[in-house]
């Protein structure tokens, strides 16, 4: 990543230079290779235009974060007010609790999101019966493919303290009903567990692939040397998937401010705002619920984007340094 970055700057400059050169009719890239590469440019045009409009276009709107934005005046007519929106935002009584909630929920998901899939992959890898293995996989993949609208509806139903099947079962072993989605202590825990429940099966794919990639002769050699199963696991299996685990840990860092909007928005309620409200739901409410506060929403969104970008870039650099991984 780091090494590639200067390359773009260099090439942007060269684009300008070469445009001038082609005007002077010197034999250049544009008169020779360009023709050969023309199909590539044509292929890229549709996606280029769409990304320009719907990904780069909105970046102009970031100006709102620094404006006393009025809908009637628009982005180009509203007055700039420096960092006032950020001052307002940071001094709001619920802003820092929201950041705390986001970090707690995101970290919980990150840690569980590594440990559970790795453990599951290790257990599943011991199974030699392919039909059994495939069936288990099909079943655990299911929640991953469903929307949080559906999953939240189901959880609201089965976790209900009065008529939910979970509390019904807990009642049979003598546990008092727990209000999973209405209690400030239980809500973040429920968010972390339900997210891990959703993703652990699909998340295990990458570890299963790494486990299959371990050279089987290593195990044979270890057996001949008299190593038992536990020793084989410690000295062959663990080192064999270590780089994948490191990679996934490092990459998951980029989600530090991602509390999981779809999940929380569909499950939170006024009773758990204190511990359940996250940055993304706050940004949404500023923008689309009640009186629109677009400047504040955009300021909060920019804060989130900048912090996330720093974490994403750091995680990519670390991934490259530690295990030689590059996104492209």
């Amino acid at each position: 990543m780091k090494r590639l970055y200067p390359v773009i700057c260099f090439e942007i400059e060269r684009t300008d230079n070469e445009m001038q050169q082609s005007q002077k009719k010197k034999p250049s890239y544009w008169s020779k290779d360009f023709k050969k590469e023309l199909p590539f440019y044509l292929m890229l045009i549709p996606a280029f235009v769409l990304v320009l409009v719907y990904s780069y276009g909105p970046m102009v709107g970031i100006a709102m974060a620094f404006q006393d934005f009025r809908l009637a005046d628009g982005i180009f007519g509203s007055n700039f007010n420096g960092l006032d929106n950020f001052r307002t935002l940071f001094s709001m009584p619920n802003f820092w609790p929201v950041i705390r909630n986001t970090l707690i929920i995101a970290l919980g998901k990150m840690i569980g999101g590594i440990i559970v899939p790795v453990g599951f992959a290790l257990l599943l890898n011991e199974i030699r019966h392919m039909g059994f293995k495939k069936s288990i996989q099909t079943m655990v993949y299911l929640p991953n493919f469903l929307s949080w609208v559906i999953l939240a509806s189901i959880f609201i139903d089965i976790l209900s303290p009065s008529d939910g099947v979970v509390n019904h079962m807990l009642g049979m072993i003598g546990i008092e009903p727990i209000f999973f989605l209405g209690d400030t202590t239980w809500f973040p825990i429920t968010m972390i567990f339900t997210e891990i429940w959703r993703m652990f099966g699909f998340g295990a794919i990458i570890y299963l692939a790494a486990l299959t990639g371990i050279d089987p002769t290593l195990y044979e050699a270890a057996q001949i040397d008299g190593a038992n199963r536990i020793k084989q696991t410690l000295h062959i299996t663990f080192p064999g998937i270590l780089s994948t685990v490191i990679l996934m840990t490092v990459l998951s860092m980029s989600g530090v401010l991602d509390g999981g909007f779809d999940q929380i928005f569909n499950m939170y309620n006024p009773a758990v705002m204190e511990t359940g409200d996250i940055l993304d739901t706050l940004i949404f409410r500023f923008g689309f619920q009640g009186t629109p506060q677009w400047a504040l929403s955009t300021a909060a969104n920019l804060f989130r984007s900048v912090v996330s970008t720093i974490f994403v870039v750091t995680s990519y650099i670390l991934a490259d340094r530690l295990v030689g991984y590059r996104i492209f």
Partner: peptide
Amino acid sequence: FFSWFFVFTTLFHGGLVPTWMM
């Protein structure tokens, strides 16, 4: 150049409200 043009959009977003306005 084109790779970065596309990858950059995964690193940084305009945000919810600006995208809605677009």
